[in-house]
């Protein structure tokens, strides 16, 4: 998901420049790097730390705290399956099992063809019409096993 085509080091250093003076700028900075590269490379931690006046431990601590940030590349698209209660009430446990079998991966893993990374999510705010699935930035409602297969076919 390296979308910009620029060298990773350039993306990292320009993001650092952009947010160096922003109060509490580390989160937006990390989002920017991840949007550009698809992940936050471990070797960028030093650059980020020195640019933001933080220790490497502090930067690593933030990256590892938040579920959204990855330190390794993922698939082209991330599929989030909602695991929360409102979706459970309409069959998300069964959907979850189906999705894992269908993609041949568990949560946190990427399909062999590199197309999808599967992640759990705890609520997409679509709770009146679950089970909910998010593929990249699109949310889908009332997803059962058949509907999921249909969605995969449409991508």
């Amino acid at each position: 998901m390296h979308s910009s085509g620029e060298a990773p080091a350039v993306i990292v250093s320009s993001a650092v420049r952009k947010f160096a003076d922003t109060p509490g700028g580390l989160l937006p900075l990390l989002h920017e790097i991840q949007a550009g590269l698809g992940f936050i490379p471990s070797d960028s931690v030093v650059t980020i730390a020195s640019g933001m006046g933080l220790s490497r431990a502090e930067v690593h601590g933030v990256i590892s705290f938040y579920h959204d940030f990855r330190d390794k590349p993922g698939g082209q698209k991330t599929i989030h399956v909602c695991r929360a209660e409102a979706c459970q009430a309409v069959g998300s446990r069964q959907l979850e099992a189906h999705v894992k079998t269908r993609l041949g991966v568990d949560y946190g893993e990427t399909t062999v063809d590199g197309r999808f990374t599967l992640e759990p999510v705890y609520c997409l705010g679509n709770c009146a019409c679950g089970p909910s699935v998010r593929i990249a930035d699109d949310v889908f409602a009332r997803v059962d096993a058949d509907r999921f297969d249909e969605l995969l076919g449409d991508i």
Binding site: A84, E85, A86, Y122, C123, G125, N126, C127, A128
Partner: peptide, 11 residues
């Protein structure tokens, strides 16, 4: 940060 399952009013 409306994280509670079953809520979407803020959204």
């Amino acid at each position: 940060d409306e994280g509670d399952s079953g809520t979407f009013a803020d959204r």
